[in-house]
Amino acid sequence: MKSTPILQISGESGGGQLLRSSLSLSLVTGRPFRMTNIRGKRPKPGLMRQHLTCVKAAAEVCEASVDGADLGSVELVFHPGKVMAGDYSFAIGSGGSTTLVLQTLLPALLHAEASSTLRIEGGTHNPMAPPFEFIEQCYLPMLWSMGVDAKVKQERPGFMQAGGGVITSEIWPIKKWKKLKLTERGAAVETFGRVLHAHLPREIAQREIVTAAQLLEWPDNHIELRYARESIGPGNTILLGARFANVCEISSGIAQIGKSSEAVATGAAKGLRSYLATTAPVGVHLADQLLLPMALAGGGVFHTLSISDHTRTNMALIEQFLPVKFTVEELEPGVKQIRCG
């Protein structure tokens, strides 16, 4: 029997996303890969705890053979087996992102022969990762429109350092992928805001609310303050969103030591303001996350604001695993079209 050739991938120009996409695609296609120089340009290269959880979780759902699954490892060899449905539970062991582990496993479990459940413990609101609300309200509804049947739930929020947050998901096998077409936002439905606040002075949240409301020209009471008393550690996040008939966008900021409340809120508010200043339905982060499902569906098209290096790297990687080609076209200043076919 002829063995499948192993894909050689350099991880130098990408971060954890390149690794997660490689794992997802390897699980779905059965194609093994070797990644060298993992996160090579990051201040601390190699596998960190949340990346290692992704690797071990991916290996568990398909009984993969893996070399290099160690903290700090800069090279990984991954030979997948058959994806198996099951009831899975994974703990990151830190505040590392639960949502990124979910996004790694979801495409594979959609292609299993029966339904699966996932329980992932770690951080639910992290810098450089989609917060739980983004998955629930922005990402997953797009997948539903493509034929996906999956649910997510946050059982407990968890922030940086302490972690302890829990998300769960139920995933049913996909019957048939539908191609994505998302070129218009549709009618405006609502704008909304929330500060999720745990075990920190109330003043921090109040300053965020005032700052964001001023920048977005909203009344202060348009942004809800919710205490996350069930969180095991301190933390804070501001979530600012806009919902349309066809799409939802959430811009977020995470409180970090050394960063003022005003800076956290300003970053989130400017992100939403930039989105609302154009007609493109797909925000920058959602664009990156829709590439893989769109490729698995065999094609599609959407309009977005701008194309990051992250997105271009992801497109090139997907093209190595799947028989698709991405094209990018500028339709007008601030609006780009990504087509896959």
Score class of each variant (00 low, 15 high):
Leu225Thr: 04
Glu75Leu: 08
Ile232Val: 10
Leu100Ser: 13
Arg202Ile: 09
Ile6Glu: 12
Phe321Leu: 06
Gly46Pro: 04
Val264Met: 07
Thr266Pro: 03
Leu140Gly: 10
Ala269Gln: 08
Met1Gly: 15
Ala316His: 12
Gly123Lys: 11
Leu200Arg: 10
Ile9Glu: 03
Leu240Val: 07
Leu239Lys: 00
Leu106Val: 14
Glu121Ala: 14
Ser89Glu: 15
Asp309Ile: 07
Glu230Tyr: 11
Thr266Asp: 00
Leu196Arg: 03
Gly300Pro: 09
Pro43Lys: 13
Gly16Phe: 00
Asn221Val: 03
Leu200Cys: 05
Ala277Pro: 13
Gly122Arg: 09
Lys41Trp: 02
Ser26Leu: 02
Leu215Trp: 01
Thr183Gly: 08
Val284Cys: 12
Pro293Thr: 15
Ser21Ile: 07
Pro43Val: 12
Gly165Trp: 01
Ile120Asn: 08
Asp288Trp: 00
Val55Pro: 02
Ser13Ala: 15
Met35Cys: 08
His285Arg: 12
His199Asn: 11
Leu291Trp: 05
Ala255Thr: 01
Val282Ile: 13
Phe159Pro: 00
Val77Met: 13
Gly81Asp: 14
Ser169Thr: 12
Phe132Glu: 05
Ala228Ile: 02
Thr311Ala: 15
Arg339Trp: 01
Ile167Tyr: 06
Lys2Asn: 11
Val28Leu: 10
Leu102Met: 10
Ser116Thr: 09
Gly164Asn: 10
Gly30Asp: 09
Ser21Ala: 14
Thr304Trp: 03
Asn236Pro: 04
Ala108Arg: 06
Ala150Gly: 15
Gly86Val: 06
His199Ile: 06
Gly96Glu: 08
Met294His: 06
Ile318Gly: 03
